[in-house]
Design a protein around this nucleic acid. Structure first.
Lengths: 204, 204
DNA sequence: GTCTATATTGTGATAGAC
DNA sequence: GTCTATCACAATATAGAC
């Protein structure tokens, strides 16, 4: 027996819209395709969300939240810097493996309309202040080199996200279309990324 | 006085098509917008390229070539590994700063149609074999740790590309919309990335 | 080769019955 | 709330004059 949420039409529409919008983008998505995916009629989409624009907005907000890592949540208190990197790489890579099309969807749409980010930032509120402070502290303590914390944070996110969004290039070009090799590569990275970042900045 | 190439209509159309397609994507681009951008009539587009599809294909091929770094060209012979990393980060970052929308365009379209890569790979032919061999050699010589060369290469490209494609998120979230700070950040990275990669894998 | 005018199709949105 | 039928417009593509 399905519960109310997973059974009602609005929920079905949203799930279908996520699937289609995230795969095809705002312009590429067709209302008909979303309706078919949801197993309902096209008109019902308009009954529930009035316009494609509004339906898209709901999906985009969801995707943005899923893409922006909740760094401060992932990083619990009282951990070493290396452990923090390791936790982050693990948790974020997991999220990305489960939702591989979200990053590209968010980046593509935000490039088309850079202004939409401002509303979302207020709602989501995600400045990675904590991690930046932690890195700055470790520099003062002499544990790591005097690097720019912003560079380190961007490096971290770059290393997690890029291999996911470049999958259709990496898979044939680097792994000869062997999905298992690619998958193992991603699994290895969970630990590799943390080691990699830490080795690059630690005092020898 | 313009030379033949830069003056003829076909060239004007292609330049306009690059601008519009790369910014808006295949589905987002409008033939009218391309025509306007080229300073000609909409019908002429069809006269020269018959369909939107064919015009898109021309643009995509160009963009793909521009995006895939010609690693083996950038890496001249007789250089140290650190110098090679440094050269690559410099050259590739320059290309990306000059063409910031190309990576996202290529990745977005290739995700929508992953099969299109096979034709292009044949034409462009870009397996980073040379760099992989060089890294493997350095491992044997004991200069660097026994890492997976593929991980190192992907790291290199990730660190170059991601900060460019995530600009609309990074700029407001990390640099408070200060374009100069972002620009300096990218400039710093040219050397930072090479150091970063090399430090992370060198034997201490 | 280049234009204007028009055909054709695709697609978001609405009206109205049930 | 859900459906069928239809509208209205946007966008690709073509016809035909010059």
């Amino acid at each position: 027996m399905l519960n109310e949420l997973s059974d009602n039409t609005e929920h079905k529409i949203l799930e279908a819209a996520k699937t289609v919008f995230i795969k095809e983008g705002m312009k590429g998505a067709r209302m008909q395709e979303i309706a078919t995916e949801a197993g309902i009629n096209k008109s019902l989409l308009h009954y529930y969300f009035r316009t494609k624009e509004k339906l898209f907005a709901a999906v985009f907000q969801f995707a943005f939240k899923a893409f922006i890592p909740k760094i401060d949540e992932i990083l619990g208190p009282g951990l070493s810097l290396h452990e923090r990197f390791s936790r982050f790489a693990n948790a974020y890579t997991e999220i990305l493996i489960d939702n591989p099309f979200i990053p590209l969807f968010v980046l593509h749409e935000i490039n088309r309309h850079p202004e939409i980010i401002y509303k979302l930032v207020q709602q989501v509120g995600t400045k990675p202040k904590l991690l930046e402070e932690i890195i700055t502290d470790e520099i003062k303590k002499g544990v790591i080199k005097p690097v720019d914390p912003k560079q380190v944070i961007i490096n971290m996110i770059s290393l997690c996200v890029f291999p996911i969004i470049a999958r259709p290039i990496i898979l044939p070009l680097i792994f000869e279309d062997d999905q298992k090799k690619y998958r193992k590569f991603l699994e290895d990275r969970k630990t590799e990324i943390a080691d990699f970042i830490f080795n690059s900045i630690k005092v020898q």
